[in-house]
Design a protein around this nucleic acid. Structure first.
Lengths: 332, 332
DNA sequence: TTAAACATGTTAACCGATTGACATAGGTAC
DNA sequence: GTACCTATGTCAATCGGTTAACATGTTTAA
């Protein structure tokens, strides 16, 4: 495997000059630049990132810790993160914590050992080791973490509120809020609060709340619980589920009970992942601007690396996407 | 940030001894081991993986290149890969190629630069740069790649065959095979072959074939095409779709046309991802042993690193999972 | 008693870059 | 003619580990 030294020899230049070309430092003539490029191509040179990272005290990798990746919300997030990272010449070092605090800590340590350029944390568990002074920025994604250097989230309260408004607008009077995925911590709690409080501001609306538990976040199976839930909550004519996956399963559960959607019961999901367009009827849902959120995370890390200032907290707007699960008429 | 030298000083030992403890080489007494551990803990020492990788000529990262990650099949795969990798003390360096050959090449180069321990390729495009003598093993996942060091796949022919047998057993006579995702290359072609050839071996079975095109693999939207498809193929009473996502969308399309499932049309998907349990009815599908396939990939890389022999090609068995989309009675 | 095996130390080269200090020129501007 | 910019070279330290060679003891076993 060719090294910088080989390239320098091939191009008839010194390592210093070649390094300058690679890192765009100091003065370099076009001619030199070209002959370096020629030599690199000829020798099929690939810079050794390990050596590079060692000498600059930072790698070009961004650590990403998610609780699950098979969950469509997180797979969409990771795809978006990868895409944004690629634009900025970063790579993704991916860790799946399964929501287990021990793994999270272990993974944070792995990021430290790899001297990542930044760490994006979207964990379920609260207890996480000290995240201060790690030498790189830690971005908390959809999660309040006072130890983190920055936070990126969407307006969950508004999301819950929009869902309530829509159901009420569609004529529902007996509402139900089902929360689930990793809702121990902040974000989805706030969704529920937004939903419940908005309902309370309207006359003649009854509203109940149900919390799904989950063994593993990668399980994605809620049917039994949803059956129990619907048994306990008869007469409901509008449901807000805190994720599209839950909402999608709910459609099946409701149908099995002979309830038509949206005629008898209207359903709103959350996230706007592909699942919401896969069901029949398609799901009305709250769109999270995942791409923008991902871009924001990467941008924070880029800025931190460049020594620029970056926002401590970014809250992005959500919006309602109307589809068949709340709408009588098909109007696509 | 503490270094090995600091740890050695703190423990009153030499760097050589500390390194021996870290790498389990040579003779070390329990006492020494403990005092090293104590010192590491006290200084909160995290070994610098960059330096480690540089001196051993290899990192502990495994490069993974997938065409998409929002597609549930690949997100399940990546989750499994991460899990297996974690057991073997590897980390995942994730790349999403979007099926674009230029990105693939770029990502292969990134893996070389990062001196990965191995590379797992599951790409859609055929043309990929030379993969020989990269200094690490390249494992082709569900893809025939003569340049790769090893291949891991499932028995796609058998999968197609099982689907045909099931539909015929359920009484279908007018079959349709819908293929899609990345089927330019080998694996899904073989699924179709297995399906078609098995049909041909039965009397009185008519069978047609339809290929979905796709702009982007992360799109996951086939509805329009599926409508066209069903317009062109009237009278079909059994469909084999080459992925659960396509099958799930098909359910909606069929329902919109007033066809009941499974009474009027039976549907079989492929992959056995969570989507197949999310639809109503749930999807009968061909289960791919993704976890085992992932484990096999990681194991090949581990063996290669240890200088052990490993299989050049591994073909894993698939099996049929019966659910509501082919079965009249509910028997869960 | 003597040879292994055990346990640690010292030293230094090496992995493949980056980077700064300092030197050397040719060209241009005033 | 002096000063400055441009362009490159040389040299060596540095990043933080790994590892081999060699030395020096202490135990243990035959």
């Amino acid at each position: 495997m060719a090294t910088l030294k080989d390239v320098a020899r091939e191009a008839g230049l010194s390592v210093g000059t070649v390094s300058r070309v690679l890192n765009n430092r100091g003065y370099i003539s076009d001619e030199t630049r070209q002959s370096v490029n020629r030599a690199m191509k000829k020798l099929n040179y690939q810079p050794n990132e390990m050596a590079r990272s060692l000498s600059k005290q930072r790698s070009s990798m961004i650590g990403v810790i998610v609780p699950s990746i098979s969950h469509p919300y997180f797979s969409k997030l990771v795809e978006s993160l990868e895409s944004s990272a690629h634009h900025e010449e970063y790579e993704i070092l991916l860790f799946v914590s399964q929501g287990r605090p021990d793994r999270e800590e272990e993974y944070v340590r792995a990021c430290i050992s790899n001297r990542v350029a930044g760490l994006i944390l979207c964990t379920g568990s609260v207890r996480t080791a000290r995240l201060k002074n790690l030498g790189f920025p830690v971005v908390a994604y959809e999660r309040l973490l006072n130890d983190a250097d920055a936070g990126v989230e969407c307006d969950n309260y508004e999301g819950g509120s929009l869902a309530a408004e829509e159901l009420i607008r569609c004529g529902c009077r007996n509402l139900l809020c089902i929360s689930g995925i990793g809702e121990v911590s902040m974000p989805a709690d706030v969704r529920r609060d937004g939903f419940l409080e908005t309902c309370a501001r309207h006359e003649g609306i009854s509203v109940r709340s149900f919390a799904c538990s989950e063994e593993s976040i990668s399980d994605l199976k809620y049917k039994t619980q949803l059956q129990t839930c619907m048994d306990q909550n008869l007469g409901v004519d509008g449901v807000f589920a805190s994720s599209d996956v839950i909402a999608a399963e709910l459609l099946g559960v409701l149908r099995a009970r002979g309830q038509r959607i949206p005629e008898d019961v209207k359903v709103i999901g959350y996230d706007d992942v592909f699942v919401s367009e896969l069901t029949t009827p398609e799901l009305t849902t709250i769109h999270q601007p995942v791409k923008e959120m991902a871009q924001t995370c990467i941008d924070i890390i880029r800025r931190a690396a460049a020594g620029e200032a970056y926002p401590a907290r970014t809250v992005l707007r959500v919006n309602l996407v109307q589809r068949g699960s709340t709408r009588m008429l098909r109007g696509d």
